[in-house]
Write a protein that binds this DNA or RNA. Structure first.
Lengths: 242, 242
DNA sequence: ATTTGTGAACTCTTTCACAGCA
DNA sequence: TGCTGTGAAAGAGTTCACAAAT
């Protein structure tokens, strides 16, 4: 179904990062081979990934760093402002809020939310932590695009639902659980008692909502597996390609 | 090349988590259909994923929660102790060190390392932060299996190299850069001046080292892209499968 | 009757070879 | 000549249909 592979998008992010590095070093030209080496993929792959979105190079010459960078910024949607709320302001949420690099591309943290009385009202960066009950009104009033979810696992589904109900279009989920339109037992009971068509009504508000997961515990476990079974992983030391 | 898809391993981690939840709720049996629904994948997928590693169910009956859980723990290598060092003890490194859930499967943080004079010597959890120069001896003396890398991007490649030189077999990379056997300009110069065969010697110490990335900034950017291009993403609201 | 386990079909992704331009 | 862009081939991964088991 995906006419552009998901993996290609991850790689575009990597290429963009490499172009930024090259730019700070005043390198003005590059090539698919050069990018491929730095990104740890094949040069075919680089050219194919770029070809999904346009023709950015010059045959015989390669790519001009600032041009390709600009184009990738545009393709990835990083040439516009994104208003973001963070839900869950514990240690992880605060680390995210303070992590440098988010503002490079106009990701702006406009609100922080938590349930803990110890956190609500506190200042983190230049923002005051608000109670999660205020989320709904805040999202609507402030044109929030995305929510970053850094709550404990058992609160993740409810918090995600709150974000979706409030109208965010994207969620970056840091909690080690699957979030989505899955009906909780309670919700299903609610709906049934009203007599609605459960299958159709539940989860409809999730239509079009994008969820990306950043799951550190899962990463640990994959690492454990591949450390025990290194032959099942495409090596970090690939033979030269092209 | 991969006879077991990488994505299958990620899904096994998800299934394991679901089994843990079911166990705490005293649910003793499940099925591929049930697991599939909770994991957001198809029941075919669940059965195929499990089939890569064995036959864990009973036809007509389904799966016994504790048995399947035990088997997945074994398959993923989580029934043994993993000694872990964290390199980089800033806000992110500390959030990782304190994040609950790592110790559930015997991931033990045995050392914390940084370069900052303000951090070295400080207590985080029950450990004293050491200077990164002590890393090499420490890894060897303490049978360290893995390193979690939470340093700034410009220090990531060097820190990763230090981990690999010290002998760790796995790296969980939180820095938004590609780390690997890629020779830095300096290293290439070094090697060339010694007259060795650069191609063969550089990066050899990386052979067999597993790198897993947990890249939060990349997640943000993918989220931006898919929020703008939702039709390019396999929907969060899939039609029922099986 | 039900649900697993699995070879085969199918679909998606990557690799390749080379045509197209500078 | 050199490197990009791309249709076609090869390879992976997912879906399917059904045989096997209880």
């Amino acid at each position: 179904m995906a006419e552009v592979p998901t993996a290609a998008i991850s790689r575009l992010v990597t290429y963009l990062r490499i172009l930024e590095q090259l730019e700070t070093r005043d390198v003005s030209r590059t090539s698919s081979t050069d990018l491929a080496e730095r990104a740890g993929v094949s040069a075919f792959q680089v050219r194919k990934d770029l070809a999904y979105f346009g023709r950015f190079g010059t045959r015989g010459m390669g790519y001009t760093v600032p041009i390709l960078k600009r184009e990738l910024v545009r393709v990835l949607g990083l040439n516009q402002t994104w208003n973001v709320v963070i839900v869950g302001v514990g240690r992880l949420g605060q680390a995210i809020a303070n992590y440098p690099g988010a503002s490079d591309y106009q990701f702006q943290y406009v609100g922080l939310f938590d349930v803990s009385p110890e956190l609500v009202g506190r200042q983190v960066r230049d923002l005051t932590v608000q109670h999660i009950e205020e989320l709904r009104d805040f999202v609507r009033a402030n044109k929030v695009d995305m929510g970053f979810l850094a709550v404990p696992p058992d609160r993740a589904q409810d918090a995600a639902q709150a974000l979706v109900d409030a109208g965010v279009r994207g969620i970056l989920n840091f909690a080690p659980v699957v979030i989505g339109p899955r009906a909780t037992d309670e919700r299903m009971a609610d709906q049934r008692s009203v007599g609605g068509n459960v299958q159709q009504e539940i989860g409809d508000e999730w239509r079009g909502v994008i969820v990306e997961n950043v799951d550190f515990l899962a990463g640990m476990k994959r690492l454990a597996f591949y450390t025990l079974n290194p032959h099942l992983k495409d090596s970090t030391v690939p033979e030269d390609s092209e």
